[in-house]
Design a protein around this nucleic acid. Structure first.
Length: 585
RNA sequence: GGGAUCGUAGUUCAGUUGGUUAGAACGCCGGCCUGUCAAGCCGGAGGUCGCCGGUUCGAGCCCGGUCGGUCCCGCCA
């Protein structure tokens, strides 16, 4: 091999006359009989190298056999290109390297797909040959953005006195929350470790141990069904701080977020991030992770529908609407599609009417008097050419369905710009959700989340309306971080456990040492964790988490490249005293 | 656990109402070609239509099941 003197992205006119060596992959071959052009590629770029039968002393017949993705080492002289041969689309397009000698380092077998753009192959094939797909420019760019995000995070947090500490990957299985990935113990037959869903307990312990400000960029594991933005193993920027309140969290995390966006994308996120309470977010956007890049807020129309002759909404707990500017263009077919869309979220239907000639037409408009038409147009800001969509149901269904409709319409109408980033804090989450199936309260965030000071009394009197000191940072419709101020009082912790149906003994059994540790001098503390992959998705401008993970899994949690999960040998199972049950049926 | 959708050459796709020998482009192989940069021109090879079963005189196409990919609901403290 000729050790490279340059990468494939750097040679310029100033290098003309130099003898250089390049190493890289054959990106394309253009064969013209007695002259062969090859674009040699590495992760820094591409350079055109030229084999000319007149000047090349080696075996020219072999040169003619070069094919895509062969790995070459070449030595040659940098030459200027003729004016007409300059390629302005290439960073190195003003020069070429005339090859004097080359070594075939690895001849590539015929490829399962062409490595130019990702549409050339379906995803299952690209995942099987992920090492080939990772050669593509788009993924190399994403991996670089991810790398820069790690670096920006570490440098910022370290400068802010955060200490990076690793916590165990083999830990105790905890109930509540997501399903754990389990790891059987060989030494303790029948016992299992769990892979962390998050290092929650350890980081609180670290606060009790006095480490003040902790962070870790860490893998977490949740054995749940997947989505476009969810993988079974994913990465968090996990943080915990002592002697702080919400304001410290907000300002520190805004600083981190701004630093990352500036360093990685040169985007300035100016000022303090806006805040919405959970109730405001739900009422205004029908979502606890609202996309603030566009308006289309939800409007309460119950008083109007009550005054109309439209009876289907009379018994609805909540009737809300959104106004779509220019939406009167929607055909029956599109409205039917949108109706099917909201039905996924349990809405019974989608009522509509179009603004026209100073009033409303179509849909359910005939059930509303002319006076109602006028007051609704004025109150809701409807103009000719707009459409009003309404949903009536119990509050949670109305808000959720309309919130999703808002996002769907924004997508159809292309209301978002990729380089627009709109962060917003969501605060004052409810402490508990009622689980109908289990007939008990479950923690909305987790069992260590503190209630608001003002709401501590409600733990006894009105638990379902107790608000917590939890917070999420959301951006463009994604939850990118979530956390809370923790309970540091043993008394309140026990109260919360009992509301969750856990005795002190059960709590110690289930949450291990943390409960006991809280009794030995726990400082007030709180923390937050960023979904690192989602953050990188936003920075990279992709909507798919697999685009920002080097070796992702499919939606059925398999790896098509290494074919995991897989069977293991009987010996391995014997060591663990594990026997596989035959599946039922 | 449920719903939607996709699966045809190495790859991306087309394939009519169920009817003779399943097509195109790119890639691959061979030939021509000294200035291309998606090089061009000529020729060739390449198919268990995901798999199993059914309906039919006849299935890539219709039906049932199954496997795999994707998206969504549930789930994800």
């Amino acid at each position: 091999m000729f050790k490279r003197t340059h990468t494939c992205g750097e040679l310029q006119k100033v290098n003309i006359g130099d003898t250089v060596s390049l190493n890289g992959w054959v990106n394309t071959v253009r064969l013209h009989g007695q002259v062969v052009f090859v674009d040699l590629r590495d992760r820094y770029g591409k350079t055109q190298i030229v084999f000319n039968a007149d000047s090349f002393s080696g075996d020219f017949e072999a040169v003619k056999k070069l094919s895509m993705e062969d790995v070459l080492s070449i030595k040659g002289q940098v030459k200027p290109r003729a004016e007409s041969a300059i390629n302005p689309n290439m960073a190195t397009g003003e020069i070429e390297v005339v090859v004097e000698n080359y070594i075939m380092l690895n001849e590539a077998a015929p490829l399962p797909f062409v490595i130019s753009d990702r549409d050339n192959a379906e995803e299952n094939l690209r995942l099987k040959y992920r090492y080939l797909e990772l050669r593509m420019e788009e993924l190399q760019r994403n991996m670089l953005i991810r790398h820069e995000t790690y670096q920006a995070t570490r440098s910022y947090l370290s400068a802010e006195k955060f200490v990076e500490i690793e916590t165990p990957m083999l830990m105790k299985s905890t109930p509540e929350g997501a399903r754990d990935y389990l790891v059987p113990s060989r030494i303790h037959h029948g016992k299992f470790y769990a892979l962390p869903q998050s290092p929650q307990i350890y980081k609180q312990i670290l606060m009790i141990s006095g480490y003040d400000r902790y962070f870790q960029i860490v893998k977490c594991f949740r054995d749940e069904d997947l989505r476009a933005d969810r993988q079974p193993e994913f990465t968090q920027i996990d943080m915990e701080l002592s002697f702080i309140d919400e304001e410290d969290i907000y300002s520190t995390m805004e600083g981190l977020t701004k630093h990352v966006f500036k360093q990685v994308r040169n985007v300035e996120l100016s000022g303090s991030f806006p805040r919405l309470t959970w109730a405001e977010a739900m009422d205004t956007y029908g979502s606890d992770k609202p996309d603030l890049r566009y308006g289309m807020e939800l409007k309460d129309v119950k008083e109007f529908t009550n005054a109309s002759d439209f009876n289907a909404f009379k018994s609805a707990e909540r009737v809300m609407a959104i106004v779509v500017e220019g939406g009167a263009k929607y055909s029956r077919k599109i409205i039917d599609e949108l109706t099917d869309y909201v039905k996924k979220y349990k809405a019974k239907g989608l009522a509509w009417m179009k603004g026209e000639n100073g009033g409303f037409t179509g849909g359910i408009s005939k059930f509303f008097s002319d006076d109602l038409h006028q007051s609704m147009r004025k109150e809701l800001g409807v103009n000719d050419g707009d459409i009003l969509f309404m949903i009536g149901d119990i509050s949670s269904i109305t808000l959720n369905a309309l919130g999703h409709l808002r996002v769907e319409i924004a997508k159809r109408e292309s209301l978002t710009k990729k380089d627009d980033f709109k962060p917003v804090w969501i605060t004052e989450f409810p402490m508990f959700e009622y689980d109908e199936e289990a007939d008990r309260f479950i923690a909305m965030h987790h069992p260590f989340t503190a209630p608001r000071e003002d709401d501590i009394g409600k733990l006894d009197s009105d638990p379902s309306n107790t608000l917590s000191r939890g917070y999420d940072l959301t951006m463009n419709g994604y939850e990118i971080a979530g956390g809370s101020i923790r309970i540091h009082s043993q008394k309140i912790q026990e109260k919360v456990f009992s509301l969750l149906g856990l005795s002190r003994e059960e709590a110690i059994e289930k949450f291990g040492f943390l409960v006991e540790a809280l009794t030995y001098g726990a400082p007030p503390h709180g923390g937050i964790a960023f979904g690192f992959d989602r953050l990188v998705m936003l920075l990279a401008g992709t909507e798919n988490i697999r685009d920002v993970i080097a070796f992702p899994k499919t939606t059925s949690a398999t790896s098509l490249m290494d074919e995991s999960p897989s069977n293991v040998s009987l010996d391995q199972l014997d060591d663990l005293r594990i026997q596989i049950k035959q599946s039922e049926k």
